[in-house]
Structures are given as structure tokens and as C-alpha cells.
Amino acid sequence: MNWNSASEFFDMGGHGFFVWGSYAVCLAVMTLEPLLAAQRRRRALQQAAQTPHGAAAARDEEDA
């Protein structure tokens, strides 16, 4: 075991700011990114549900 107390753990040998600053930002962006990606998928699904069937057929013909 490296630590004798919780405060020693958070202090990181006097470098707590650097260690926890790294881990905190890492946790923040790696939480935010999946949430944004999941939100994008839900939104795409909602949008698809609102696209009328007829419009789909018309666009496919246009592409052809």
C-alpha cells in the first residue's frame, strides 16, 4: 500500500494539482463525448421518424 491516509492520497507527494488536474479533465471529456454521441443517435432516430415515407421515395428517384 502506497498511502497511509486519504489526505496523503489526494496530496500525491505535493503534486496533487498536476495528477488530479490530468485525471479530472480526462474524466470530464471522456464522459461528455459518449453523451454527445448517444444524443446524436437519438436525434437522428427522431428525425427519421418524422421523414414522410413519400419523401424518401421521391429522393431515391432523384438520386437515381
Binding site: P34, A37, R40, R41, R43, A44, Q47, A55, R59
Partner: peptide, 16 residues
């Protein structure tokens, strides 16, 4: 996360 985003992109592009 990449697969989640790709799935969103598939839905967006294949909407019709």
C-alpha cells in the same frame, strides 16, 4: 464511442 457515432451517422445518411 466511435461505433455509437457511426450508428448516428448511418441513421442520418440513410434517413430515407
Amino acid at each position: 464511442v466511435v461505433f455509437t457515432r457511426t450508428r448516428a451517422m448511418v441513421l442520418e445518411r440513410e434517413q430515407s
